[in-house]
Design a binder for these strands. Sequence first.
RNA 1: UCCCGGAUAGCUCAGCGGUAGAGCAAGUGACUGUUAAUCACUGGGUCGCAGGUUCGAUCCCUGCUCCGGGAGCCA
Length: 466
Amino acid sequence: MSWATVKDALGGKHAEGSTITVKGWVRTRRDSKAGISFIQVNDGSCLANLQVVAPATLSNYTGEVQHLTAGCAIEADGTLVRSQGQGQAFEIQASAVRVVGLVDDPETYPIQPKAHSYEFLREVAHLRPRTNTFGAVTRVRHAIMQAIHGFFDRQGFCWVNTPIITASDCEGAGQLFRVSTLDLVNLPRTDAGKVDFAQDFFGKEAYLTVSGQLAVEAYCLALSRVYTFGPTFRAENSNTPRHLAEFWMIEPEIAFADLNDDANLAEALLKSVFRDILERCGEDLRFFDDRVLKGVIARLENFVAAEFARIDYTDAIAILQKSGKAFEYPVSWGVDLQTEHERYLSEEHVGRPVVVMNYPEQIKAFYMRMNDDGRTVAAMDVLAPGIGEIIGGSQREERLDLLDARMVKYGLDPQHYQWYRDFRRYGSVPHAGFGLGFERLVAYVTGMANIRDVIPYPRTPGNAAF
RNA sequence: UCCCGGAUAGCUCAGCGGUAGAGCAAGUGACUGUUAAUCACUGGGUCGCAGGUUCGAUCCCUGCUCCGGGAGCCA
């Protein structure tokens, strides 16, 4: 590109005194009757704005420059100079300011130079990337994605693109979105009166994926180290700051590995990503620390520095029972841990990330590996202070007879999982993996409290706007 | 889905049984190498929707819609 980014202009990538062009959107304009206007320009390349100093001698000064308002798109040519004012090292002494796109009606332009509520900004999700917060979220989200791919690449993993449309009638987790081309108001019927899915696009019932795990296990048992990273869909009526109907999930799967290897991988991944972000996203993180959540940087630094605690579910239950806390949900062996229990364990009892391992088999999915005690499975959850469950994973049941037994116990027909059972028939090996909710990770890194504000266009029950 | 809370100007909010206010934003002017500049003036509202009570409802009551917080489900 033949013009300079704001990031490069402020970051010393262009020589002082050189003539450059910048292009971006006006954040604010201040006029001085001494004969100049100050235009804060942002192009999203970084958090900071570039101050364009426009002299009254410009031919379009009174006609255009003095009518610039927040949101207008401009190009400015000028000399990069040290700023005479406080607040920025460099600025542009403009020789020309061209208006590329004006704001039709400044009074109703939603993004004003003031604090907006997140709730309001969700209603203008197409314009909120123009705010400091959403610009920073977008850059950090990108950097996290790069950091994840970078980590796996260095570790010899292959990124496997598992299907988004699936015909597996039970992937194990959550309500499914149906995918169909049938005419809903005139459904084809079988003689028995049932909907005739044989006439549907795929010749059978199909859904959006709730997990790529079963599909990626096939590649794990050939390439040893693989992961999926893609959109995931859950049709649950969840209305919380931690749930989306459409979100992105990372699911690594490793062969010749047990639950401890799995926990080691989870710890290494998270720490590697946080280290990268601390190193790469300093300006944006300082903004989050200052304006969004005090202490978010220290939280990341502590996360990187501390060893994860690891406790058995059975021990966790004992700890909770001895805590003396009056929990809303009573604790006993066999119950799933509630949010309040997870918070106590990670925030109060150990004060750092904790991996809870080996859960009762009846509260976990059919594919998890039965432990030798006959009553727990090799499952783990990673609980982080301040966000709760961020990772859920397990060692997979690699023994066919035990897998079949668990399927039957869950009311699943092994006939429907022949391809999945094949892995256990042909060169089966111990393997393990986990699921990491990408938006929960972004929320944790940025300190944003609501997951709807770390994805560009959130999909939640009753809301698929934009 | 359950429990709480909310909906008043473009935005953030205050207010009151007698047909509405502030700050910011916008427009105009003054002033100034300014930093979410400052000052003055101006325009801007079916007080979420539908019923009910009342002489009169933005205010009280009922229903609905939407939003937020907490919980469940989970990543």
